[in-house]
Design a binder for these strands. Structure first.
Lengths: 129, 129
DNA sequence: ATCCCTGCAAACCTTTTGCATGAAT
DNA sequence: ATTCATGCAAAAGGTTTGCAGGGAT
């Protein structure tokens, strides 16, 4: 189905080494330009990674740019994502908390939360200080 | 400083009437095209509204588009939205439940939820049957 | 009268696509 | 041998900008 290529490895390794940081396409291209990866390959691979749920695209408040963040390290279908609107980072909510919220909402609202699809917006611990 | 124009009123009224929903620029343009607003005016006014903190730009998981959401109403800042992915309806979570979730997440994750900005996805009571 | 806003079109920037070549399987 | 990915360049799409005319104050 998919072949392993140098360009893919370069991109994946870079993203995996920086799982908590956010990069715009521009930044990624700049950083990886020396390693030999064309813009079209970059776009195509970013798309593929997004389809596979390995990366997420998001925005920062105040910025008009789109950022990518690696979220492939955990099983994202059983977690709620916490997205900080200040710095743009995405965090995984502990699954115990997520499940207790799910049960709470199911009981009180009759609404069944799809954990993997929902993102909660707010301000993260670091940005609160 | 700023003048009140027909175009601005059209856009603002539209957004205020749909405070829970997210619209792409394309959608807004399509909806408002009949009312007479040019694309450049739309872009400029969206930018201005964003600067004033009246609207937010955000992304949907899986979509490559940018969406705008009106967050200027006091009312919407105090509740979480529940969006049913089956029928598309949007519900307002009871504020008691929303607040208990907010406190729960603050304590356990150190993350301060912005209630008005977050939408939880899942299936509503009616669609579960 | 003095700004500011609009609409148009051009410019600009970002992303996608077609195609031939080369690599992975 | 077949299939897929790449790089290039062109095309397509999205956003910004300069400017002249028209409104808002």
């Amino acid at each position: 189905m998919t072949y392993k290529t140098d360009q893919r490895n370069i991109l994946l390794e870079f993203l995996q080494e920086n799982p908590d940081k956010m990069f715009s396409e521009k930044q990624i291209e700049e950083i990886l330009s020396s390693k030999g990866i064309s813009r079209s390959a970059l776009y195509r691979n970013l798309q593929a990674l997004e389809m596979n749920g390995k990366i997420k695209r998001c925005t920062k408040t105040g910025s008009r740019e789109i950022y990518f963040q690696y979220v492939g390290l955990q099983d994202c279908k059983s977690h709620i994502h916490l997205s900080c609107t200040k710095c743009g980072k995405i965090f995984h909510m502990e699954s115990e908390i997520a499940n207790s919220i799910k049960n709470n909402v199911a009981l009180s609202q009759g609404f069944s939360i799809n954990l993997g699809e929902t993102t909660i917006y707010g301000t993260c611990k670091t940005c609160l200080n």
